[in-house]
Design a protein around this nucleic acid. Structure first.
Lengths: 286, 286
DNA sequence: GACAAATTGGAATATACGTTCTATTATTGA
DNA sequence: TCAATAATAGAACGTATATTCCAATTTGTC
């Protein structure tokens, strides 16, 4: 095991030996790569606490990488830190460089990413303004109290549905993703009961099947929660709770950042709700 | 003499009291202002030697500025060091703006959303830092030149795959979503050819099927583009191009904002690329 | 299911570090 | 030049910190 001599090498060494490490050492390895600042400045005790590990494990970690001790390894993290600082002016230059490249006609991929990141940030800011706490609370109540959760979306909105289905399953809620495979949508829908809840997501141009499904469920008395884009959405009529995310249709490729963050908020809030007031007809871990 | 609370104040205090200092303290003061990094990281002994001064003089210096000891003063230098690094992420201001809107957030749904929006913004900022223009360009080239595009992801990463599949289809590229339904993953994989490209996404804990699939494709000479989380990912070994989004694993519910925005950047950039240099063995609109 | 090996937790130890104290050396003013 | 005072050097001290070591626990294997 040859000891690294700078941060880049160290990163490489950690990555390479990561698979062969014990569970605890892996935990430390992840922390080290994610929060190099903390490793650079903290004491062994402090870092060990942050990683939820004994101080001795930190030394073992350093030793396993070929260092004589923790301090020896820490030097590399410190070196990297000052390096970053001394080069920190270059970041703004990089952005400028990207900006210039962008204006010369052919949109460079890096410029595209930069722009999308900007758009996404703006979307997030709007999201917070357009979502009322009352709606969130109502939706969480419906979800937490439901016997089963059904999620439905298609096309562009489908990732939102698959995320919701995955995340609610992680919370050990009975969740069904209605993907309408093989034209089974009507059949699946019939099994949605009044004590359940139906989560739908759809944006322009609204998928007719989803609209129809929401309307039918609503007519049968099933509570519907809708994630959609603005007051013109046909989903609004069928929804007990409706989240209207003003989706800027001027962009050709609209992003899913806002609806997904909303979805995540629903999941996390539901998790909190369940933790406070557990057991409402659904199973929990033993 | 009131003790400073941040680096800027400290600088000011030193400048002000400089004229009244003894010769030796002035020497230290100059050193401190010229090499703040050394003050941040070095030990008393080391700094004293660099300044050609006795260690005790360093303590006298700190005391003369109102600090209880050297370590207390050093905290300010350290704080400044990490601040410089973290500030270079440019979006920090926007994040702060969002964070400041309301800070009384507990576990209330609105507070949760607020927090998630903040986290997502931070993720976006990191995304831009961690993605190199070269990787993006290389990935776009691979995608635009491929006969067919295959997309694979499972569990938490699945929404990324479904988004990619949908979006590339909109670009009228031959795109296949390998969802592994009914254990058909191995069979679907066999149809992936060397002139195709395989896009995979996986985060901890990495789905073994996806890892294996990527490795197999790579072994067969199929170019693999991976979206994953950091240098520890087992996908790295199989990838022609690998996007490493340092996913903060300290949060229980990690968001998909960063990978999805990256995915969108790939789609949009590929769109541009195709517009410039059309027709490479794939059909176009009639 | 029992044994061996590896991993981990936690107290004990050694070391490095910051700090304090005092003797010594410069500095200043008469 | 000689006190009187401030400044400094350097050793001594106590604390905080890294490190070591062994027991306890988990993990792997037959």
């Amino acid at each position: 095991m040859d000891r690294a001599t700078n941060y880049e090498q160290l990163k490489e060494t950690i990555s390479r030996s990561y698979p062969d490490m014990s569970k605890q050492l892996q935990r430390i390895a992840r922390f080290a790569l994610e929060k190099p600042h903390d490793l650079a400045l903290g004491t062994v005790a402090a870092i060990a606490e942050a990683t939820e590990v004994q101080p001795s494990a930190m030394i073992r970690f350093a030793n396993s990488l070929g260092f004589g001790g923790f301090s020896e390894m820490q030097q590399l993290f410190r070196g990297h830190l000052v390096e970053r600082v001394e080069r920190s002016t270059s970041y703004r230059e990089r952005i400028e460089a990207i900006r210039k490249k962008q204006s010369n006609g052919a949109a460079a991929p890096a410029g595209v990413l930069h722009e999308l990141v900007g758009d996404a940030s703006a979307e997030l800011a709007h999201l917070e303004e357009n979502v009322s706490p009352a709606s969130l609370k109502a939706a969480v109540k419906l979800i937490a109290g439901a016997a089963r959760i059904h999620v439905l979306a298609q096309r562009r909105a489908f990732p939102v549905a698959s995320y919701l289905a995955y995340a609610f399953n992680q919370l050990e809620l009975r969740t069904h993703l209605l993907d309408g495979g093989g034209g089974m949508l009507r059949e699946s829908l019939r099994s949605v009961a009044r004590e359940d809840v139906l989560l739908v997501a759809s944006f322009r141009h609204y998928s007719p099947e989803v609209i129809a499904a929401a309307a039918e469920a609503h007519a049968r008395g099933v509570p519907v929660i809708a994630i959609t884009d603005g007051p013109l959405s046909p989903l609004k009529a069928s929804a007990r709770v409706c989240f209207e995310l003003a989706d800027d249709s001027s962009k050709p490729f609209r992003s899913l950042v806002a609806p997904l963050t909303l979805a995540q908020a629903l999941v996390v809030s539901t998790g909190h709700q369940l933790a406070e007031q557990p057991a409402r007809g659904k199973k929990k871990k033993p």
